[in-house]
Simulated scan of single mutants.
Amino acid sequence: MVQIEPFAVEQWMDAYENTPGVLNIAETCVASISIDYLQALCIDKSKPGPLALSKKLTYGAIRGSNTLRERIAALYTEDGVEPLSQDDVLLTQGAILANFLLFYTLIGPRDHVICVYPTYQQLYSVPASLGAEVSLWKLKKENRYIPDITELETLVKSNTKMIVINNPNNPSGSTIPGNVLGAIVDFAKARHIIVLCDEVYRPLFHSLPRGKEAPPSILSFGYERTISTGSMSKAWSLAGIRLGWIASRDKSIVEAVAEARDYTTISVSRLDDQIASYALSDDVRPNLLRRNLDMARTNLELLDRFVQKHKDVCNWVKPTAGTTAFVQFTQNGEPVDDEAFCLDVLSKTKVMFIPGSKCFGHGKDFKGLVRIGYVNDTAVLEEALKELSSFVGQNLSSRI
């Protein structure tokens, strides 16, 4: 029987996100929107809405409609890089299924996988459950959670099949710069290793240092054995349609995953396909992305002011992208018990976020760190930070 580790972050969300009156700043999607709101973003108001209600609800196009796959392929357009085609894209029920199918299809008991850490637990627990050996490529706070390319030499093995990265990173909100991505690809190409990059938070590069450009997708470096996964949930505010994708220039990978997918979901919902196509159209996508980038910048500054106000007991590496921040709380100079801290905060203030050592680490890794999802409704974040500020002032700062 396959041995699967409990998915700690999802179980925490399931247990506490429906607490009555909860101020949820654990959520990782940019504040979700309705279909009405999506239509209001459309530049050309004369165009029909996203749903063709007269269409029969068949399975639809098995790999996804041509329109949607073309629009997803266009998201990977980079200057000087060969464009992706619709055949390089395969739709799935969310990026979580995209990642699972890739591991299920490509990874087995004799393989070795290198995965960045911390990251979304699925990216290392699923390969391990399939019998692969997994080495964690530990990201360091002092390096702003950017992978140290020199460490790959100590991690790689003769049977290394895949390197797994996450850009922008969950939970830290860090960005892997283009030159580091290029070095990872060069390292993998020399050894014929697959590179999987979970890019669900792309293109939310909202707070890069002045003069720094957003890094290209992993598919932009001229190495065929690279894979990107993405979804409509995080950067595009449409988690409810459960639509993600796999994109790769390696036809054999796309075909192998498509064959495995036949045993699971066959196709994505025809309704979800239509809504995603509408959201990624030229009439809607620019306004939706602008809205989400503006909200990310506004809310990040609110969180930054909170951290600065409580810098005696609170520290972080300020995120440059994505929707999540990894914030450490201390008491008397020592990291708090983050799980107990999260439960105490929830009980006394209704503010909910995620304990780092339980949901992103092993043992004492990330002690005192919590993941905060800050790109929810600004009013919710403001109220949550007000409550949290009062709690911190009474329970941490006052004892120093």
Rank of each mutant, 00 (worst) to 15 (best):
E387Q: 15
A132G: 04
L303M: 13
P203E: 07
L196G: 03
E78S: 10
Y223D: 07
G108P: 05
K311D: 15
I107F: 11
E382K: 15
N287Q: 14
V30M: 08
W245C: 00
R270G: 02
I25C: 01
G393T: 06
D198H: 13
A247K: 01
S217V: 05
V257A: 03
N66Y: 09
D377Y: 13
C29G: 05
Y278T: 04
A40Y: 07
S135W: 09
E151W: 05
T229R: 03
K318E: 11
A73M: 05
R297T: 08
L23A: 01
L38A: 02
P83T: 08
T92P: 04
V284L: 03
R297Q: 12
D377G: 05
S32N: 12
W316I: 05
L219E: 00
S65C: 07
W245N: 01
E301T: 10
G363Q: 03
R210D: 14
F306K: 00
V317I: 14
L303P: 05
E334T: 10
V164M: 02
E387T: 04
A31Y: 11
I275V: 15
V180D: 07
I43H: 12
I176Q: 00
T175Q: 02
I176P: 03
P147M: 02
T229H: 06
V313P: 06
E10Q: 13
V164C: 03
R249Y: 12
K47E: 13
H206E: 03
A31E: 11
L106T: 03
T175N: 04
Y278A: 00
M162F: 08
K386H: 12
M162W: 08
E27Y: 11
M13L: 10
K55Y: 12
G230I: 10
A95P: 00
L271W: 11
R242T: 06
V195M: 05
G178Q: 13
K386I: 08
L369C: 14
E82T: 14
I241N: 04
G211F: 09
D338I: 08
R210F: 10
D111H: 14
K189P: 03
M13V: 08
Y263L: 14
N287P: 01
P319Q: 02
V113Q: 01
V126Y: 15
D304Q: 10
R285A: 15
S207E: 12
S135K: 09
W137M: 02
L102V: 14
S269Y: 08
W236T: 04
S129E: 10
F221C: 03
